[in-house]
Design a binder for these strands. Structure first.
Lengths: 283, 283
DNA sequence: AAGAAAAATGTAATTTTTTGACATTTTTAA
DNA sequence: TTAAAAATGTCAAAAAATTACATTTTTCTT
């Protein structure tokens, strides 16, 4: 809710004097946020309370509050712009562009996540007998990462890259098992088949995939992610970052649900690694 | 220039009372912009002029001006790092916090990337006889992902999770081979050893790791990433997202270096997948 | 370790800014 | 044309921010 747009929109409903104020502000918003109500009144050739009334008409608490909103609108230059890599970009250019567009994609993805479903899936995972993570291609490494996170929770976790192993694993599923299938497009045939097999064997199937895809229709729960992918590159990039972040969200939900004592346990798991590492001097 | 970061940065140079003010503001910036100087002074248990002096120390004209800056920083969507997941967070809270802190970490990581080194590493990769990606634990899935990207380029790519395979593979290295080692801490013993083995066999070793870590000292080139990690969770999260993004940067640099014809080739690789997928109706 | 100098912080008064109450003017509509 | 309603302005009260100066705390020297 950008206040500058709001001024433009509501301009018709303003009174004559209020419109004078609006014009002055729209003409030079940067000056407006650094002016006092007296200065602004003089610039608009209007009395001070009129400026105040103008502010209230825009649903702000008063002039200072209005300035705050205005300042935010001015700052709000859509933080992360989705910029595409260009053929002539130097290393600095494409490095920044990729980081920035990844951040932009994450923002879009964030807004597309249904937290209700997240909550239900976390519930499922905490109660699962066995958790399987399957993906193919770029999503295989996401599943791989999920394995790395969830196996720390001391729950039976399964991960395979091989589609035959995936199928066989799903054939052996039973009630209480959760199968998480990861696919950006949701159109990979063998994954859709795996979803069917898992469900036939009473497992709960969670899809991290696009809404309304063939895979999504075969899942018990769908965590859909809307991610703008730069198709010029012919490689999945932002999509799998969003998937990984969602895995982080699930893992975090899991640990929160399990409570404090469980967190201490995680620390112990992490501390086990110490022997395999060089000590840090300043700690 | 984000004022929240500025506060965090300059915190050391503040006086005791000023730090109290800083803490209150950092803890709840959203409240701060809606408070008067008196309220904020009371919240910080400090006198009003102290708050005012605090504002001036940050190069603002005074308290109102400071609030303006703060409002802009908050509006910027610049999600700021300090948003750690809290025990009592609901699904909406932790979902947003994780996405936001991931984005914030990417921003920090972006600024820490040395594009000169990126450029040199891209050079190396395009000329490599064979490229190996090795990582362990959470970084294994990053290496896995790198495999998925680079094998499309029709270059011999190697990836192993097993440390013995990694070692053996490095024993067989020769001039022209590039070994990319991924480790957030850079303290994993076996990876450091692998770096030594690879270098003894004339391979070029590229480390995606922390600056000044044991691993970084054994590498020919170090792509250091500075990533603020939420250690409360006892799991690597933001670090591997940053690593993956860096892999994307390298892959993108690679394709750009190879030129247009090569890009068409990538498209063909992607199109090969069509048979394994359900067709999309509207395309 | 004592004491002077410097820095930090607080108190209280002053100034600036904002807001509210009410009077006046302008607009609207019968 | 005129009464009612809406809009606007004047001025005073209230709130907020800032300044000047006093007091306390810290730091450094001897």
């Amino acid at each position: 809710m950008n206040i500058l747009e709001k001024i433009t929109q509501n301009k018709a409903s303003f009174s004559k004097s209020e419109r004078k104020v609006a014009d002055v502000i729209l003409a030079n918003p940067q000056t407006a946020i650094h002016s006092s109500i007296a200065t602004l009144a003089k610039m608009s050739d209007v009395s001070e309370p009129t400026v105040n009334r103008f502010c209230r008409r825009l649903d702000t608490k008063g002039f200072p509050d209005f300035k705050l909103h205005l300042a935010q609108s001015l700052a709000n230059g859509t933080p992360y712009v989705n910029r595409h890599v260009d053929e002539n970009d130097g290393p600095a250019d494409y490095t920044n562009k990729i980081f920035e567009s990844t951040m932009a994609s994450l923002e879009v993805a964030r807004q597309s996540v249904d937290v209700q479903v997240v909550n239900r899936v976390v519930d499922l995972l905490t109660q699962a007998q066995k958790i399987s993570f399957f993906g193919l291609g770029a999503s295989a490494s996401v599943a791989h990462d999920a394995l790395n996170k969830f196996f720390r929770f001391n729950v039976p976790v399964v991960y395979f890259e091989d589609i035959l192993m995936q199928r066989m694993s799903c054939m052996n599923c039973s009630t209480g098992d959760v199968v998480v299938l990861i696919s950006h497009t949701g159109r990979t045939k063998s994954l859709v088949e795996i979803a069917q097999i898992a469900r036939m064997n009473d497992a709960t199937v969670v899809g991290i995939t696009s809404a309304d895809s063939p895979l999504s229709h075969e899942c018990t729960y769908v965590l859909s992610l809307e991610v703008p992918e730069d198709t010029d590159m012919y490689m999945p990039m932002a999509s799998r970052i969003a998937q990984l972040t969602l895995i982080d969200v699930l893992a975090t939900g899991f640990t929160l649900r399990r409570g404090n004592k469980f967190r201490e346990n995680l620390k112990r798991v992490k501390d086990t690694l110490r022997g395999s590492r060089y000590e840090k001097r300043n700690e």
